[in-house]
Amino acid sequence: MNDAVLRVEGLSTYYYTDKGVVRAVDGVDLVVGENEVVGVVGESGCGKSTLAASVMRLLQPPAKIVKGSIFFRNVNLLELPEEEMRKIRGKKISMIFQNPASYLNPLLTVEEQMVESMTLHLRISKQEAASRAVNILEKLGISAPDTVIKYYPHQLSGGMKQRVMIGMAISCNPELVLADEPTTALDPTIQVQILEQLLELRKNLGLSMVVITHDLGVAKAICDKIYVMYAGKIVEEGKVGDVFNRPLHPYTYGLLESALSVYEKDRPAKFIDGAPPKLVEEIKGCYFANRCFNKVDRCLIEYPHPSFKNGRKVYCWNPVGD
């Protein structure tokens, strides 16, 4: 597995709060191959954004990476001094954030924001960087990019802001882009445009991508492989088609049922009873057991070991359909 762009091994990120230690990311393994789009799917509070922030090393106290390693092209990012990490962050690995409105600086023009990282990382002049920025925006489907670049963020629509965010993320030719809910703040007709754009970038620039989303439809539309996350842990991974057509973990199964049952008119909407566990408490056994329809005695005693099947991996003592 040496050709992996990103290899996360046994990563644990905890938040040390007054109320106890929150195990937001708890022993996560994840591999992103060359030119691959990998989805991390889960619901609010499952740790997916903390996972992305860990890879970028953007965590602030009380969050702390306590275990594991993050290999980017076989270099462990967690062992790099901050100075080295700064050369990678924004250049080789970049990030698209969930809410472009709050990540763009309202006091700087689009140009000022886009140029900064290029002058730093590519060591080019401001003029060169500015013309590069115009080029990028044009490729991202912004008409009149030389006007737009002089705008302040409040003058842009939601879709345009997200395009500018994407533009900033790809401006230094990154090898890996982490996209945290890249289309959640957008309306459906704009969401489709942005998704198509991401797919095009992947094709044209040979990018690898990690797409973090709660939206199963988005994951299905653009990912090759997905990881399903629940309560800080990966519960299932596999090729998108496999996971969607034949989910193995009862959580994945329930999540898909919940989403798809609403598309049927004449039967009750499906849901998963109960709520995810509080991650400060000690949990014995499988974290999903209290909500699971398929549990067996062992689930309450021991956290499931992974089982492997046709390139798929599931953490469950009693997978669906076995």
């Binding site: 489709v192 439809g217 994951a219 539309a221």
Partner: peptide
């Protein structure tokens, strides 16, 4: 038709080609 096509992205609920609208509202 475009809204339906965009909304069900991935799930393939609507029939036919995906419709991608130009521009913004």
């Amino acid at each position: 038709q475009a809204l339906v096509s965009s909304f069900s992205v991935g799930f393939g609920i609507s029939r036919g080609e995906r419709i991608v609208l130009k521009g913004e509202v």
